[in-house]
Design a protein around this nucleic acid. Sequence first.
DNA 1: GCCGTTTTCGGCCCGACTGTTTTCAGTCG
Length: 574
Amino acid sequence: MNNFEVAAFFKKMASLLEFRGENPFRIKAYEKAARNIKSLDEELSAYYDQKGRVPKIPGVGQATKEKVAEILDTGTFREYEETVADIPPGILDILDIPGIGPKTAKLFYERLDVTSVDDLVKAAEQHRIRRLPRMGPGKEENILRSVQRYLENSERKRTPLATAVPIVELIREELNACPCIKELIDAGSLRRRKDTLGDINLLALSDNPEETLDCFANLSDITEVIDKNNDFCSVVYRGEVRIDLRIVPEESFGSFLQYYTGSKKHNRHLQYLALQRGYILNEYGFTNTEADDTIRCEEEKQVYDFLGIDYPVPELREDRGEIEAGMQNRLPELIEIGDIKGDLHVHSTWSDGKNTIEELALDARERGYEYIAITDHSPSTAIANGLSDKRLMEHAREVEKADENIDGIRILSGTECDIRSNGKLDYSNRLLENLDIVIAAVHAGLEQQEKTMTKRMVAALEDEHVDILAHPTGRKFGKRGAYDFDLEKVFQTALDNDKILEINSSPKRLDLNDTHARIAKEMGIKVAINTDTHRLDNFNNIRYGVDVARRAWLEPKDVVNTRKLKDIESLLGI
DNA sequence: GCCGTTTTCGGCCCGACTGTTTTCAGTCG
């Protein structure tokens, strides 16, 4: 159980208590505990395993500490379970809908007898909501829209790549103890580095398939074995993620790897090409339709060689033109992590970051970066301790000082400036023009209608001080989709005004996503891959941003922060 | 439920945005 999961219990608990109308300060205390647990640097479970107690955390007193221990021991806590049991189950779903908080859920429950999402939809459609106090037609409409989006999201519950990767690392470590496994290889969407995974696909070479699959089925944290036979086993990890392991024969390892990497569409296209040449292509290799004789590929590349296609890396295999490009020797030279020369979106202790400007700079230098931009929040994002005008000026001076004191890396002064709901920026021109870099971002008023939101974003992109639009579509995994806005218009505005669009590497965002980043590239819009770092280890998330970029066919030249310091400076007009 | 005391009980309590109001409640990051 990680900190986010522990924090989620307390956040949820706060909602439930608010729904029941309990002491607001007790509710606040739970919210605060959740916030502080989420922003801890070390993993509670690791600390607890090692020391047998819960560390001191601000806002977490004795009572909550005991609950944390209970969660780590048992996966839940008694009071939470009792509270949940006391509330109609459908209410829990309603509380998950963005825009509907505990107070609103309570109102609907008490006045309209709404105890499920279904009830809620009916109440809205029958216009019963608009008659409630402080409700009206606009509210009713917004609620219907939120519910619709919520239902769409919950239908396709996929696992974010950044959740899957650590799980696979743990499994890999545990399976190391199993001597019969010769090699364990990622396959499927995991290998293609898709941002979310339906399930995790692994392949293994083994001398003893039976024993290997037994090892696998008995891993800790496996909560269910769905299917198991001679060369295949499918399990559920912690009741959430499905993981398939398949033992593959060495003589056709390449064919298997290619086949189980997919995607389905990519494979279907290859199968069509094979058939034109008189072969059936499947996981065993190419089978001659007449002679019934199979060519097994030991190496994956042989599959492509056989069809006369340059080898496409897994990230490209979506049948979005990579097969045609491979046939014409014009596959892109994709960007790699090593190409990244700096990070243009970093938060320090001045707003909601965990590290000082110096710590960030030294760590970035250690990573071989030539530059970073310190881009703390603006006043509108108050909960993140956004910088007032006065503090912004002090901040810039502090950055300048650090830049003078630390050799080997350039530290740029910047801001992640809120785009207010009316399209105005959170700082005046006078302040913005003193900064090296200005990132603009939408953080509030996310439910605006398409026209308003588009206008708002366009206005920001037309501002001469703005360099980058951060997390342009606003999506967050498991939370909400993109803002309602005209993507084409916003992208065109970015192009016309020579602005940079961000691929935000934060695992909960990955925004732009691969298709949007590809559109940006094709339109000729510059892209930056940033981590939005709030603490040092967030710098590691760059891998996920680069994954997105690679899936979007981006080459080093498409990404501004592959440029050397002096080129980035001239690009930013410093 | 937490915290910090002129120390064990009283105060805690961001601010923009939205859709309602006719001065504000609820949600969110």
